[in-house]
Design a binder for these strands. Structure first.
Length: 917
RNA sequence: GGGCGCUUAACUCAGCGGUAGAGUGCCACCUUCACACGGUGGAAGUCGCAGGUUCGAAUCCUGCAGCGCCCACCA
């Protein structure tokens, strides 16, 4: 492909080109390996088919892509498996909304036609998020893409349901569930979000029914005979379904009322006063109305006391016909009317402000109504026990580790899982009800006859399964389960899961439970759906607010990408992705990383320019052996690159994306560009002799090797720009079709080459002295206000060792610090005008202009204060017997060495000050 | 009511037992032949508060204050 780089870095053009290339060349498709050795598998948390890419996705996919590319380049057979989720409620709502614009409801179409309509919708609009993923450069295996409603996955869902049923873990029953009257379906506990809401607490008088006999008894006993019992409630409309009043058995106030009957106001039903521990004497009046069909606690009381369950609302949360004057009224309208009617009868004792926690549907924000209905449940305890053990035994590792606690917390207090939904879009429950005996037959295929009575008139269950039921099975169903496939054998358990904490319970926990259960014949350690979980943070806006459509602060990743380029956005997210910390995403921050990309671009152009000038082509590298050089800057940059390599590999192994990004940024900009390229300019801008040309070629070769390695180090973070430059570097003759398939750098030092390591350390020490000297000269020039273009002579006072280092690298010092000439003197320069002292050298800038004595004195005084403070700390520690005996030797040695330096520096600084007068 | 975090330079965040760091922003100078999406130099922090452990604490422990998140059936 591209052999040369355009003058200006334009991400939009190159990103489109390579995104297409990766997909059309099928670069990331992985054939099924023979064995599971060195295989890395990652499942993409399937976005909703209705989804549009948001910053959360982008962070998630950037992290997954970095890890995936890193693993792939490091020699793993890497599979990143993409897919989309059919998202029951969300998708059904979307299509219903579309129907509504045509003035239709789903009931007008009927179940089959409606489902066909959803498929149509999916064919037309369902691919949006995949297209967006391609723009991010996500290196997934598109050939294996799945959809949770695909036939093979649907078959697996039925199989899983039937097996759980056969294991006795699925039951059907009439219980209080969370009901959304707008979605008209049951939802699980997790789909209800509780909000503190300012509401009212109403106290209502229920008239006590006194029989003549009881009344007489009371009067003779002088026991008092109250007319009413007052109950407190936040939802007066449910009184229509009251079947008892409960008081605490220990509540003296009500002791002798237990067993009596009261009349439910407005409807006149007689109900008993019962004693139950649930009633809290401290709260309200101590007496609570009991409505078993509309409250989970009341449901439990009802079971204990065998109370009738009277439902008073329909599926839309309207009062049922025939109940007082309230039939057909919406629950909140009914509440108003009931309160007014109570008031009129003087039965409303009081109304108080009361904050309560109101449950709302996560989909549509409608207030959830606890409703008595028949649903399918998963008996969760047996599944949870195994899932807890899997994590306790360390078969799944959480990063950050704190999420393990959250996971245990939830798992240990888990309730049975309501898995049926009254929707049409989804996996229909494989159960058939007998028209005659009304019992259910659960089967993989449509049964011929009832399993209980043998009759043949059967009707399939109309409910579908919770979407999370099918996604909870994905880690094995995507590999062909229930069949025993090769894929399942080599890819399961997957290696890693990267996801947000918001679906820790919805998805992560359920995958663990279901995986451990269905794969249990592999043994616990191998039954888990993934070996590691990395939980990433939330992307917030620049003000740390949660992004939300209603607040209007949602940042559209595609827009930011168009402004700065995908690479810059990816790099920004990576550099902010410190485990466990939410990300405050400010688009302005991307600017800095866009500049970084530009910097790399120009570094490449610099090398290419010289390559052209020198007529040097075909600089290729096998990616393994280092080209030798003994030049200080060459050994030094190699040592720095090795260090960066070691750090990046270590950081990625711990999902410390921010650290890896920082290391690679600092290497490229702070070391390679700022120092190395500046230094080699000396060798690249040489003359025409054959010796000069040879030097240029050597220099180019060496710098290309370094640059090539650095590009591969950066590639997982910025795949596009590195691909573009890498392809150009090899002039179309790349060793691999893509940089993404090239080798990720590993440090030669880490492979055990002690003499190389020693040489590196010496080079680093020498460069550190030269760098310090150069920086000091520059600073002194700035202080003396030497015009930038003027070269100045300098004097240096050093020991012979350092002198040799400087002499060997004199052109470097002269070029980088703009020095005319260096004179080595044999007397201390401390105190001389324009001098600076360091532990290893004394340096004086010779400049005719008069020194600003005041400024110089200020600087020296500041230095002096700092030095004195450090020295006194240093001396205090070194004078401390305890420290000397207890601190580790290297620390003590370090301080001793520093003490010597400090003494010297103090002395020199003081003498300089004295000279200034 | 339970549980979990966070508080370090103007801003965003690293560091988590051995002399306070980065990026952005800010100030000054420089359009030098890769890059002004640049270069060079510089200013800027009693590491929330109070105790404790330690030779040594931003780093470990306890308490307090502020901020945030998750879970939960108290009418």
């Amino acid at each position: 492909m591209a052999h040369e780089l355009s003058k200006a870095y334009d991400p939009s053009e190159i990103e489109k080109k390579w995104a297409d290339f990766w997909v059309t060349e099928d670069l990331f498709s992985l054939p099924t390996p023979e064995t599971s050795g060195k295989v890395f598998t990652l499942l993409l948390p399937p976005p909703n088919v209705t989804g549009r890419l948001h910053m959360g996705h982008m962070l998630n996919q950037t992290e997954m892509d970095i890890i995936t590319r890193w693993k792939r380049m490091s020699g793993f057979k890497t599979l990143w498996l993409p897919g989309t989720d059919h998202a029951g409620i969300a998708t059904q709502m979307m299509v219903e909304r579309q129907l509504a614009t045509e003035g239709k409801k789903r009931q007008d179409l009927g179940r089959e036609a409606f489902i066909e309509r959803v498929w149509e919708w999916r064919r037309e609009y369902g691919g949006a998020i995949q297209d967006q993923m391609k723009r991010l450069g996500a290196s997934v295996d598109w050939a294996r893409e799945y959809f949770t409603m695909d036939e093979n996955l649907s078959r697996a869902v039925r199989e899983a349901f039937v097996r759980l049923y056969e294991d006795g873990l699925i039951y059907r029953g009439k219980y209080i569930v969370n009901w959304c009257p707008r979605c008209m379906t049951a939802i699980s506990d997790l789909e209800v979000v509780h909000q503190e809401t300012q509401g009212k607490l109403y106290e209502i008088r229920y008239p006590i029914i006194w029989s003549a006999q009881e009344a007489a008894e009371r009067r003779s006993a002088d026991a008092g005979m109250p007319e009413h019992i007052v109950v407190a409630t936040t939802r007066p409309e449910t009184m229509l379904g009251d079947t008892a009043i409960a008081v605490s058995p220990h509540d003296e106030r009500y002791k002798n009322l237990v067993g009596l009957k009261v009349r439910v106001p407005l409807i006149g039903r007689e109900i008993p006063i019962i004693a139950d521990d649930w009633a809290n004497p401290e709260f309200g009046t101590g007496a609570v109305k009991v409505t078993p069909a509309h409250d989970p606690n009341d449901f439990a009381i009802g079971k204990r006391h065998d109370l009738p369950q009277i439902s008073v609302m329909d599926e839309n949360a309207r009062i049922l016909e025939g109940i007082g004057d309230y039939g057909g009224l919406d629950r909140f309208k009914a509440r108003e009317k009931i309160l007014a009617d109570l008031e009129a009868q003087n039965l409303l004792a009081s109304v108080k402000d009361h904050t309560l926690s109101l449950g709302r549907c996560t989909r549509c924000n409608t207030v959830v109504e606890p409703r008595l209905s028949t649903q399918w449940f998963v008996k969760i305890q047996p599944l949870a026990e195994v899932a807890i053990q899997a994590v306790e035994d360390g078969h799944i590792r959480f990063t950050p580790e704190q999420y393990k606690k959250t996971y245990f917390e939830w798992m240990r207090n888990i309730h049975d899982w309501c898995i049926s939904r009254q929707l049409w879009w989804g996996h229909r429950i494989p159960a058939w009800q007998c028209d005659a005996c009304e019992k259910h037959t659960v089967a993989r295929e449509t049964p011929q006859k009832c399993a209980h009575c043998g009759r043949t008139e059967l009707t399939q269950e109309t409910d579908v399964l919770d979407t999370w039921f099918s996604s909870g099975l994905l880690p094995f169903t995507v590999f062909g389960w229930p069949d025993k496939t090769k894929d399942l054998e080599v890819f399961y358990p997957t290696s890693l899961l990267i996801t947000g904490f918001d679906i820790l319970f919805f998805w992560v926990a359920r995958m663990i439970m279901l995986g451990c259960w269905f794969m249990k014949d592999r043994g616990l350690a191998e039954s888990v759906p993934f070996k590691e979980v990395y939980i990433h943070a939330l992307v917030r806006d620049a003000e740390r607010q949660k992004m939300s459509k209603t607040k209007g602060n949602v940042v559209d990743p595609i827009q930011v990408i168009e402004q700065y380029g995908t690479d810059a956005v990816r790099f920004t997210l990576a550099s902010l992705a410190s485990p466990g910390t939410d990300i405050a995403f400010n688009p302005e921050r991307v600017e800095g990383n866009r500049a970084f990309a530009n910097k790399i671009w120009n570094a490449a152009r610099f090398l290419f320019m010289h390559r052209e000038k020198a007529g040097v082509h075909g600089i290729f590298w096998d990616g393994e052996t280092f080209v030798a050089s003994t030049r200080l800057e060459d050994v030094w940059i190699r040592a720095k690159l090795n260090a960066a390599t070691v750090q990046v590999n270590a950081a990625l192994a711990q999902y410390r994306f921010h650290e890896a990004a920082h290391v690679v940024y600092h290497f490229f900009w702070g070391e390679f560009c700022d120092w190395y390229l500046e230094i080699i300019k000396l060798r690249l801008n040489q003359g025409e002799t054959s010796e000069d040309k040879a030097t240029t070629c050597e220099t180019l070769l060496y710098s290309h090797v370094i640059f090539d390695t650095a590009l591969r180090l950066l590639s997982p973070f910025m795949p596009f720009i590195t691909e573009e430059i890498w392809q150009a570097l090899y002039e179309g003759k790349t060793p691999k079709p893509s940089i993404a398939l090239a080798e990720f750098p590993i440090s030669p030092d880490s492979l055990g080459e002690p003499q190389v390591a020693a040489g590196s350390r010496a080079a680093e020490d020498q460069m550190a002295i030269l760098q310090a000297l150069i920086v000091d000269i520059r600073a002194q020039r700035a202080e003396l206000k030497v015009e930038p273009k003027i070269k100045v002579p300098i004097n240096i006072f050093v020991n012979p060792d350092v002198k040799r280092i400087i002499e060997n690298n004199q052109p470097m010092v002269e070029k980088l610090a703009n020095v005319e000439s260096i004179r080595f003197v044999d007397q201390s320069l401390a105190g001389s005008a324009g001098a600076r002292v360091a532990p290893q050298y004394e340096m004086q800038v010779i400049y005719e202009q008069k020194i600003d004595a005041a400024a110089e004195r200020e600087r020296l005084n500041k230095d002096l204060v700092k030095l004195e403070k450090e020295f006194s700390n240093n001396q205090r520690q070194l004078g401390n017997e305890q420290f000397l005996s207890k601190a580790p030797a290297p620390v003590v040695e370090g301080l001793r060495r520093r003490a010597g330096e400090l003494e010297l520096l103090l002395e020199k600084t003081k003498s300089s000050l004295a000279q200034l007068g």
